[in-house]
Structures are given as C-alpha cells and as structure tokens.
Design a protein around this nucleic acid. Sequence first.
DNA 1: GTCGCTGCAAAGCTTTTGCAAATCA
DNA 2: TGATTTGCAAAAGCTTTGCAGCGAC
Lengths: 147, 147
Amino acid sequence: MKSVAAENIKEKALQWTPQRKTVFSVIANSEKKHLLAEEIYLMSKKVMPNIGLATIYRTLELFCTEGILQKINLPGEPARFEMLKEGNNDHCHYVCLGCGKIFEAPIQKDLSLSGAENDNIKDFTITTRSCWYFGYCKNCRDKAKIK
Amino acid sequence: MKSVAAENIKEKALQWTPQRKTVFSVIANSEKKHLLAEEIYLMSKKVMPNIGLATIYRTLELFCTEGILQKINLPGEPARFEMLKEGNNDHCHYVCLGCGKIFEAPIQKDLSLSGAENDNIKDFTITTRSCWYFGYCKNCRDKAKIK
DNA sequence: GTCGCTGCAAAGCTTTTGCAAATCA
DNA sequence: TGATTTGCAAAAGCTTTGCAGCGAC
C-alpha cells in the first residue's frame, strides 16, 4: 500500500527507496496520528537500524511536498507530522491541555468564508485549512472540578 | 494605555518595568499584527538600545501567560506574536501563500462543535481557538492566471 | 556513467538558561 | 534589604546542510 501520492514519487523520477518505504509504513501503521520527527526516527530505526536522522527529515519534507504528510506546528514543541488521506482532509483538531490527547472532527463546509466582511477574504481561494481548538476533554474537566 | 491584562501584572507583584513598557508599546503601535520575536527585538532596540534579546523572549512569554499576547506557530518560520484584545479574540486567519499577507475574519459561533459525532468532542470545553486558512488572495490568484 | 539518495558530522537558527549586576518596592 | 529583572554569554534543542560514498537506472 503506497497511496496515489506515493505513486507520484515514482512518476517524478524520485525513488521509492527502502528508507522511504520504511518511513512511510512506520507512519501508516502507527496508532498515534500526530508524530514527532524523533518518534518517526526511533520507530524507523527498529526496522532499519542504520537509517539516519537527516534521512528522516529529508523524507518527511519530501512527503509533505508530495501531499502524503502534513506538517503540524504547535506551540512549545517540535513539529508533528500527520498522514493525509485521499480526498477530504478538512478536519479540525481538539487538543486537551490536560491529557494532551488530540481528537478530530470534520470542518463545516461553509466555514471558510463565514463572517467575511472584507473583500480580501470573500475572494480568497483556500487550499489548506488548519483548525485547532485548545481546551479540556470531559475526563480532564471532571478531574479538575473534583480537585 | 496598558490594557486590563497589563494591569494584572502589577496586581501580581510583577513589575511594569521600562523594558516591559517598551515591548508592550512597540507591539501595540506596530502596523504589522503578527510579529516575529526578532522584529520586536529590533523595534524595541530603536527605543531602548541596550535591551537584550533574552529580555524580549522572557517578556513575550510573560505577556502570553498574562493573556496580553498570543503565540502563533506557522510551519517553516519562527513563532509570531499577536496582541489580544479585551473580549472576543475568536478570529481566523487567511494566509496568502503568494504575498504572505494575513487577513482576518470572525469565527462562527457554532463552529466549534459542528459535525461532532464523538463524545470526546461534544463534551469538549474550548478555551482557545486557532484557525488558519492557507491559499491565495484575489491579487495573487489573478497574477497567477495571467502567467 | 550519471544522477539521486544516504549517513555522518558539522553548522544554523531560534529559543532558553545561568549568573552576576542592576533595579525596583 | 530582599526579591525580581536585566543583559550577556553560553547552552540547548530542533532542523538543515555539506560532503564523500553508495546505489539505482
């Protein structure tokens, strides 16, 4: 399993090397969805002990430009990477400040231009959306109340 | 002009020092809304040549925890800082990938829980929203078509 | 044989930290 | 005076880059 985007790499005469296969499968098979470069590196090293960190970074960058991955930057921590799916990737993320878990939900279709009173925005062509909500999940909120 | 949040600093026995005043006024009076630490540092140095970069970072962190500033992390560049206003700060950002300009619009009220099919999300308490749309403004899109 | 890819090490950049001196309450 | 803040320099942490060797086509 490589995905259409992965096929694109071959078409562009870029190589589907063992290292790139490893990085791809490690991310694709991970239970965690939002991975640090360091985590991807360590998981890849289990499969391919000689792989270098620079290769990880170069591969992640490649995958991002090819639309296989999305890079996520949250405050106070290194970048994370999330696998994109064919078709709709318009979901928003709910980050619990208590337990650190990340939940996801679809983004409303009409959300993008809502409330636009500004021509610049009414006439804006969106290519990528990134919506992040920070707060507390039920569990953590309940715990906080008990305290 | 200091804002309620700035007053809070005094109440907490934190000091409203010349350096902090400088950083605050430099950001408050800037035309650009989304500033790099480096930009704030250079602007502050014009007013107070001896101010140190570490002081800038420490002040920015303080202002963020006090709710005076919001830290913004976009991929591929250092953190930016945006001044928060009293009351509603729920706006989303449109970043033009052509000219780099950032436009703003209000966020829909009902946006947060829309499409939630998941209990974790239905029952999520949001404290902060961060919505970013990437794409092309009218100008840049038109230019691209001419090419 | 050419071109791209890899691993290693070094460098780069942003941000944080340690500490003595200065400042403020 | 005692606690906080500052500036400088050094360190830390993440990421990128240079380069020689390797591998694919």
